[in-house]
């Protein structure tokens, strides 16, 4: 079995500690340093977790898209692993978005959920990537990576639709913070970006661990297959 590269082994704990410090600082900034919003009060601080989680999920879905296209062209197994890992971690971040959104909506809108275009399209996006993961998990056909890559390409088309849905449709969801004509206090923007950086570093580390796990799992599966083949030959 292949062991870890020495550089990777050393870098991971250092990056892990730095990310933990960054996440703690981001938490302090969100709960203490950021100014309190006048109309919503403290509940607006949910935004510092909700929005960076959404951005991180979108980036991971785009990584999944790029890796899937690369896999379809080159049939590169590493690209297939990157696609799987980015979709899985992206679904985790998208789950955070779908959970924190209604928790914010209840005190602000008075309802947990509404079938508005942004919320519904985010739920559909989540379902597409969950179905992608189910396909990866439960299909053992040799064509599974290619089928999953094709599904990922279609799923990625949904990402810009989710982001721009609040421009094209009348929706209850607030306007985008950046590039959507909305305005934000510079101190709030600073806290938002710190949180995004912290969650992006965290997502990178989780993807790294998950990539290594998936590579090891595939090597173990290959070794088991080889073992079975040798048993068959020995028995014949």
């Amino acid at each position: 079995m292949r062991d870890d590269l020495p550089g990777m082994k050393k870098a991971f704990p250092i990056l892990g500690v730095l990310t933990a410090i960054l996440l703690s600082y981001a938490l302090y900034e969100s709960l203490v340093a950021a100014p309190t919003e006048q109309t919503m009060g403290d509940v607006q601080r949910i935004f510092y977790y909700h929005v960076p989680s959404a951005w991180t999920a979108f980036i991971l879905f785009f990584v999944n898209f790029g890796a899937s296209v690369f896999y379809l062209i080159k049939r590169n197994p590493a690209a297939d692993i990157v696609a799987l890992v980015s979709a899985e971690v992206g679904v985790v971040f998208c789950t955070v978005v779908l959970v924190t959104g209604p928790i914010w909506a209840r005190p602000v809108w008075g309802i947990w959920w509404t079938w508005d275009m942004r919320l519904t399209s985010t739920l559909v996006l989540w379902l597409i990537y969950v179905s992608y993961l189910f396909l990866r998990r439960f299909s053992s056909s040799g064509q599974t990576p290619a089928l999953a890559a094709a599904l990922a390409v279609l799923g990625a088309l949904c990402v810009p639709f989710v982001y721009f849905s609040i421009w094209f449709f009348r929706t209850q969801h607030p306007q985008p913070v950046m590039g959507g004509g909305g305005s934000i206090d510079p101190r709030m923007l600073h806290v938002l970006l710190i949180n995004w950086l912290a969650f992006s570093c965290f997502a990178f580390l989780v993807c790294w661990s998950r990539y290594r796990l998936e590579s090891l799992q595939r090597e173990v599966d290959q070794a088991h297959a080889l073992e079975s083949l040798m048993d068959l030959r020995g028995g014949a």
């Binding site: 938490l27 709960l31 403290d42 509940v43 601080r45 949910i46 977790y49 909700h50 989680s53 955070v96 959970v99 924190t100 928790i103 914010w104 209840r106 005190p107």
Partner: peptide
Amino acid sequence: YLFAAYAAT
């Protein structure tokens, strides 16, 4: 609600 959102995350 704020605590619930952060804890859930």
